[in-house]
Simulated scan of single mutants.
Amino acid sequence: MIRYRLKCDQGHEFESWFASTAAFDGLHKAGHLACATCGSARVEKALMAPSVATVEAETRPLAAPASALEEKLAALRRHVEETSDYVGTDFATEARAIHLGEAPERPIWGEARPDEARALVEEGVPVAPLPFMGKARAN
Rank of each mutant, 00 (worst) to 15 (best):
L27N: 05
F18N: 01
K135P: 00
N139F: 08
A117S: 13
C35F: 00
V80C: 02
E58K: 09
E56C: 02
D25P: 03
P50Y: 12
I108H: 03
G39A: 02
P131F: 08
S84K: 12
E56V: 14
M133T: 07
A119N: 11
S67P: 05
A46C: 06
H99D: 09
V127W: 12
E116W: 00
Y86A: 13
E82C: 05
P65W: 03
A46N: 12
Y4M: 05
N139L: 09
E105F: 01
I98E: 04
A64T: 11
S51F: 15
M48Y: 03
I2L: 13
H79K: 10
A92R: 05
T21N: 13
C35D: 10
A23K: 09
V43D: 03
D90S: 13
E71P: 00
L47Y: 07
E105D: 14
R60C: 01
T89D: 13
C8H: 04
G11E: 06
K45V: 08
L130W: 06
E81I: 07
E122H: 05
V43E: 03
S67G: 15
W17S: 06
P107E: 10
V80Q: 01
A30C: 01
A112W: 00
V125F: 04
L130I: 10
E102M: 12
K45S: 04
V125N: 02
S40T: 10
A75W: 00
T37M: 07
A36F: 13
A36V: 02
E123I: 04
M133C: 01
P131G: 01
A41P: 06
H32I: 00
C38G: 04
E13G: 06
T93R: 15
F91L: 10
A66E: 15
C38L: 07
E56Y: 04
A36E: 11
D9E: 14
A49G: 06
E111T: 10
A19R: 09
E70S: 14
A23I: 01
